[in-house]
């Protein structure tokens, strides 16, 4: 075993123990990436560590293969927006695994990208919904866009009734209430209704 190999093995060991930061951490990761020997060491150190802590080898030999397969799958599915469930998966798994495990770092990394993606998407939708900005959103409906331009207040359209909050329209509504109340139901109830119901500025 050369000095260099020893040095590298110590690097992996330190990584297993969670002692590496910044440049050293990056170096260790780069080394793990290019050396299959290093990856075997990585796995072996974990098995040794588990055996020392628990008295038995908790991790089976097939674990390394499983990790490899999972990693391959993750690389195939590495588009951030198709991993909306990643955050909860991470929360469930991270406490079980060693925190500096490269694989889990990959998962966490992907998850955070996914999270950022989700938040950005929600943020985009949030920004797009009120007011005329909706007109530039690719999926906006023409009716909604025209309505959004009609008044300064946020409006909704669809099954729910549209609330009109435009001073000019409010004024006409109030005038309709005042002088358009030619209903037989006006006298007992209509008047009470109109005085109770707020039409914006009376």
């Amino acid at each position: 075993m050369t000095d260099r190999t020893i040095e590298h093995s110590e690097l992996v060991s330190a990584l297993v123990d969670g002692q590496l930061r910044d440049t050293e951490f990056a170096q260790a990761m780069a080394y793990l990436e290019r050396s299959s020997e290093a990856r075997q060491n990585w796995h072996a150190y974990h098995v040794v560590g588990d055996a020392m802590r628990t008295g038995q080898a908790a991790a089976g030999a097939h674990d390394a293969d499983f990790v490899l397969r999972l990693r391959a799958r993750l690389q195939q599915e590495s588009q951030p927006l198709v991993l909306p469930e990643a955050p909860s998966t991470t929360v469930a798994l991270v406490p079980v695994a060693s925190a500096n495990d490269r694989f889990w770092r990959l998962v966490v990394g992907l998850a955070s990208v996914a999270m950022v993606g989700v938040i950005a998407w929600q943020g985009f939708q949030g920004l797009a919904s009120p007011g005329p900005q909706l007109a530039v959103a690719p999926s906006s409906q023409p009716a909604v866009a025209s309505l959004a331009q009609s008044g300064p207040a946020p409006s909704t359209l669809g099954a729910a009734p549209v609330m009109i909050r435009d001073p000019q329209l409010d004024a006409l509504l109030a005038a309709h209430r005042q002088f358009g109340g030619t209903s037989a139901l006006q006298m007992p109830t209509g008047f009470l209704r109109n005085a109770t119901y707020e039409e914006g500025a009376p």
Partner: peptide, 16 residues
């Protein structure tokens, strides 16, 4: 002009 003619609006039973 900002109130381009659009679909009827509703507020309860009142339409506009």
């Amino acid at each position: 002009s900002k109130m381009a003619a659009h679909e009827p609006m509703a507020m309860g039973a009142t339409h506009m």
